[in-house]
Amino acid sequence: MKGVLLVNLGSPDSPEPKDVKPYLDQFLMDKYVIDVPFLLRALLVRGIILRKRPEESAHAYKKIWWEEGSPLIVLSQRMHKKVQQKTEMPVSLAMRYGKPSIETGLQELADKGVTEVLLFPLYPQYAMASTLTILVLAEEIRKKKFPQMTFTDVPAFYNKPDYIKVLANSIKRSLEGFNYDHLLFSYHGIPERHIRKTDVTKSHCKINDTCCVTQSAAHKFCYRHQCYETTRLVVEALGLPEDKYSLTFQSRLSGDKWLEPYTDIEVNKMPANGIKNLAVVTPAFVSDCLETLEEIAMRAKEDFQENGGKEFLAIPCLNDSDEWVAVVANWINEWASAEIPVA
């Protein structure tokens, strides 16, 4: 019997420091997030970061927390419910960090007799700290707890035509009636070394103006290339002129070289460069979360306006929109009726 496990990032149980701290510990101690030896990672995370970060993050979470709970969890649950209504197969929802766990999700499927699982990371672009860590943990759990199961992984869908169409349509609807000067594509940042580590050719990725547009097998796992390609395809679908948009990366940690240009720095410079009305879309996420609701819709907006900007529009993620749900359900049903993996 076939079933599906949708997997998103996750969230603390509450916006209180006592719940934020264990969530951050689980997240930051992931070797695919902070990819240094365990002892050094423990020193950085538990000896330094977790001394102040839980209070700071809790403050940010409190600003975006809904009455029903974490926006990311609530939106993921809504999407899950809608997807389930469009397929006869069992569909479960899990989070890489926090609850419900991947093990819980797999157990739900196993209890329903599922032996073939479509593992669906809800990330358009592939990255070590998102897609890979989900796939690795799920496989570890499968071997220990569910050896009877087999997995089919949904690959990064950053360039799939139906995804691009839904994303472009969502942006177009959001921009109606908004006289914007510029559309910013802001993607979650990652350390540059992650790009090099996922380069299957071990030589292609130079992180410059040419490698991401030069055909290579490395692109299958290159987050930077996939961000630029998503942007290119959406821009093409919207018919945007070259001077009307740009791409940046957000949410970096100090101490490492992360992908550039940085969202906060670029946003702060825009008013002085004549951009007074700014729209921002965050295509690395399919569900609104702390990084979109607080970092972009609140902090970036405040910084933009303090530096002379006027109107700021944070474009919502795809969330549980009917068009996006229909695409996800269609991919699932295609897999259910085929003998070949989702592509």
Rank of each mutant, 00 (worst) to 15 (best):
G255K: 07
K172E: 12
G309C: 01
A279S: 11
V91E: 07
L183W: 00
A129K: 00
I195H: 00
G10A: 08
D30M: 07
L132G: 08
P22H: 00
S76I: 06
L44A: 06
Y245E: 08
S254Q: 13
M95R: 05
S254F: 11
T231N: 03
A217Y: 11
V328I: 14
D320E: 15
T104E: 13
C222V: 00
K82R: 13
G10N: 02
C222G: 02
E311T: 06
S203I: 06
L40A: 13
V20D: 04
E242N: 13
P15Q: 01
R41W: 01
M29W: 03
E302M: 04
P283T: 09
T201G: 11
K81N: 07
D264L: 11
V234G: 11
V286Y: 02
S92R: 05
K276M: 11
Q26M: 05
R96L: 09
I195V: 08
K244I: 04
E306C: 13
G105D: 03
E116K: 08
D13I: 08
M149F: 01
K81Q: 10
V7E: 03
K301C: 14
L167Y: 02
W66N: 10
I34N: 01
A284N: 11
R193P: 14
E55H: 04
F120W: 04
P71G: 13
R173W: 05
M79C: 13
W331L: 10
P124Y: 00
Q107D: 08
K257V: 14
P12L: 04
A343I: 13
L238T: 12
L293Y: 09
G189E: 01
R78S: 14
V7K: 04
T104F: 09
I296E: 03
K310S: 15
A217E: 08
G274N: 00
R46W: 04
R78N: 15
V200K: 03
N159K: 01
K165D: 02
S57Q: 05
M298P: 15
P71S: 09
F27K: 02
V234A: 10
D153H: 12
V20C: 10
E68W: 00
Y61T: 11
C211Q: 11
V45W: 01
L247T: 14
D111N: 10
L135S: 15
K145T: 10
A156E: 09
V286L: 02
L184P: 07
N319S: 13
R173I: 09
P17Q: 07
A336K: 06
Y158F: 12
Y163S: 10
P161L: 02
E16Q: 13
E176P: 09
